[in-house]
Amino acid sequence: MPTKRRRWLGGAMHTLLIGLAIIWIYPFVWMIFSSLKTNTEYMNAGFKLLPEVPRWENYGRAWNVGQFSVYFSNSIIITCTTVVIVIAMCALTGYALGRVRFPGRNWFVAAITATMFIPKGYTIIPIYQIIKSLGLLNTLPGIILAESSGAHVLFILLFMTYFFNLPKELEEASEIDGCGFFRTFVQVMLPLAKPIVATTAIMQFIWTWNSFFVPLIFSINKPEIRTLAVGMYAFVGEHTVDWSGMAAGAAISLLPVIVVFIVFQRFFIEGISGSVKG
């Protein structure tokens, strides 16, 4: 293609893609500006985007009156604990599977992979019953347990492949230095697996933060343990006319996950790309 034509084509493409991108993320832009308007302004805004004066007090109202401070800390506690639990379990499992050919190893890998494909019913009901019989219904640990309960096949396989490909000499050298199996894992091998830890952390963070169904059914009778996703849903039902408060609440809920994604997107995109190629 001649350079001149290519430049023209590139320019046209950019104009098109930028225009489309503005429409694409407009709902979020609109949400942020709506959160800075008064309710009357919101009602009469039409598609006027900017508020006359930014009303930051909407955020204060959502945070205090709307209980978003409680929801926010619940979301943080649930998400961070779940991420730590999932990383610990998957790294340990992946290490054992990748480095040791113990009897039953292949059977284990086959079993966790098979659960992805066999037909299952509505499995949340038995999980609900288990959490109930443990006495953890309507508690934060109950939600955390349910959130970290998946088989984590993708993460385990990522860790397994990564540990499998590390050279044998590393382990041997560390053993000669007097490290046992566990210390070799913690001090030598796990630090090398940082990219996989990062991918697991980011993906699990975003999944748990965005989770709605599990925290919804596990906090039905207990507003104090609602997460942001559930709290927002409840807020809409309870404060039907406080639109700018709702927009502020939505912004409080979405901004953390958007920031985390933009900062760490490399690991997230890699994790997703891995699931297609694999």
């Binding site: 499992t93 040791v100 113990f102 284990f108 299952k120 949340i124 038995p126 999980i127 309960s149 385990i156």
Partner: peptide, 26 residues
């Protein structure tokens, strides 16, 4: 082998309780 079993134990327990059992009970 003993270490490997200890390493997979938490995930295996979760797997049996929160994946296998729910699939059967569903």
């Amino acid at each position: 082998f003993a270490w490997a079993y200890a390493f997979i134990f938490p995930q295996l327990l979760f797997f049996l309780v929160f994946t296998i059992y729910p699939i059967i009970m569903s």
